[in-house]
Amino acid sequence: MYKITRFRPFHTLLFLIGALILSGSAWSQTPDTSASERIYLKIEVRGLACPFCAYGMEKALKEVSGVEKVDIVLKKGWVFISTPLDQKPEKEQLEDIIIDAGFTPGKIEYSTQPFEYKADHLKQ
């Protein structure tokens, strides 16, 4: 039987403090202002109520070809992305991605102009 008789609480505490400090580095995004040759999408994602759960949604959408950043407005259930015009994702593709992330797709809007919104990470 595998046994451990020496537990080092101080080492455990140091690890947790170190991880806490590392987590402090910002993952915030900057707004995309490159308006030319891009298509902008406003996606309603239903069920996006838990901020810690939203990471899966962001990760999945970042894998869409041409997407460089994903902005989320949790309170409205909106997700904003943009891609080059020639890599415009189809609605069905995005709906599948949202379902696979564990959420429910709502309305998806396309625009050649950036949508006006204030991403959560810019609000104070």
Binding site: A49, C50, P51, F52, C53, G56, M57, A60, L74, D100, A101, G102, F103
Partner: peptide, 16 residues
């Protein structure tokens, strides 16, 4: 809204 509870299970899973 908030994160997953500490000593209770959460019904929100991680996605595919």
């Amino acid at each position: 809204a908030q994160g997953p509870p500490i000593t209770t299970g959460t019904p929100v899973m991680l996605g595919l």
